[in-house]
């Protein structure tokens, strides 16, 4: 049975492995370059004031991470969609379409065992693939995470490329594809529906992590207060006056235009605003919530996918054609 699974799906396995290898090579080169650059050019760690050396370093690191980062930015959408369409959808749909289920299900292996081997074998491979992706992105990010340049794993640019979330997306997409294949019994419609659902899920969940918990709230206590700790995921930023009324930056600027002037970037302005009782408020998720959010997103994806997968498996095992 394992041989059959491998024989029927080796193209997908080999292609995915090859793409991961290429990505790994790209990230290795980029990461080594960044580590080298950081080792030579990183200024002294306390870059509290904006010295030219500090900003030059930050700009240079940004320039380095951007092209590869943009490439990686597509992966959370593309990779699950491809996994769903090419690993999941054909799994059952192709058999039904070509009538080969009538051949395979009348050999001496039960339908249950056949299906279990395929789903468990391919599902495990897909999960492993997602973990490998996270495993090669993680050290690449670490190469850039040289102070004062700072990489936050909770940052939504990286959140779906590290930890268990890629694996959860890949596995759910695979199960989704398998289920649509079982329900539609034709490969192309199953692929199309899988792609559409993957895209919907991606755009639907794009900003969702902000809502995975009630954000923490910090109110400015001194003029120079840094509200959200390093590495946190910002949710909302606003101002309140003495009576607690909310102000956006623009509204505050308008209210203070007479007394504090218009140049909001100066320290004098900040002091003036503070003196008038305006306090900055930040709502954010601290970096410590990273794993909690990872598991939350994994649950949001996997629970519906597994329910749908269960329905599809039941339908397939029921001897009715």
């Amino acid at each position: 049975m394992l041989w059959l699974t491998w024989r029927q799906h080796r193209m997908q396995v080999l292609l995915t492995t090859a793409l991961l290898a290429v990505l790994g090579a790209v990230l290795l080169i980029s990461g080594l370059g960044a580590a080298d650059f950081a080792a030579q050019n990183a200024p002294a760690t306390d870059c509290v004031t904006d010295t030219p050396a500090c900003s030059a370093y930050l700009v240079a690191m940004n320039e380095r991470i951007r092209p590869v980062g943009e490439l990686l930015g597509w992966l959370p959408l593309l990779a699950p969609a491809m996994i769903g369409a090419f690993w999941g959808a054909p799994l059952l749909a192709r058999e039904f379409e070509h009538g080969t289920h009538q051949l395979t299900w009348t050999q001496s292996v039960t339908r249950r065992r056949w299906l279990a081997t395929k789903i468990v074998g391919l599902g495990a491979t897909v999960t492993l693939g997602g973990l490998v992706l996270a495993g090669i992105v993680n050290p690449w990010l670490a190469a850039f995470d040289v102070p004062p340049y700072n990489i936050d794993h909770l940052d939504l640019r990286w959140f779906r490329l590290v930890g268990i979330v890629p694996a959860a997306w890949w596995l759910s997409a695979f199960v989704l594809g398998m289920a649509t294949g079982a329900l539609f019994r034709r490969t192309l419609p199953a692929m199309a529906v899988t792609l559409a659902v993957c895209a919907l899920a991606f755009f639907g969940l794009l900003r969702a992590p902000s809502f995975y918990a009630t954000p923490e709230r910090a109110v400015q206590a001194t003029v120079a207060d840094e509200l959200a700790p390093e590495g946190s995921l910002g949710v909302n930023d606003y101002w309140i006056d003495r009576s607690g009324v909310k102000f956006t930056s623009q509204e505050r600027a308008l209210a203070l235009a007479g007394s504090c002037g218009t140049d909001e970037t100066t320290k004098k302005y900040a002091k003036c605003a503070f003196g008038h009782g305006y306090r900055q408020v930040a709502e954010f998720h601290p970096a410590s919530r990273f794993w909690r959010f990872q598991w939350t997103e994994a649950g949001i994806l996997l629970i519906p996918a597994l329910v749908l997968g269960g329905v599809a498996v039941r339908r397939t095992l029921r001897p009715r054609i």
């Binding site: 070509h98 080969t100 051949l103 050999q107 001496s108 039960t110």
Partner: peptide, 15 residues
Amino acid sequence: LARVAFLAQDKPLYD
């Protein structure tokens, strides 16, 4: 399953 062999109408095989 082991006792019965079945040849379906279109004689499906993996092409």
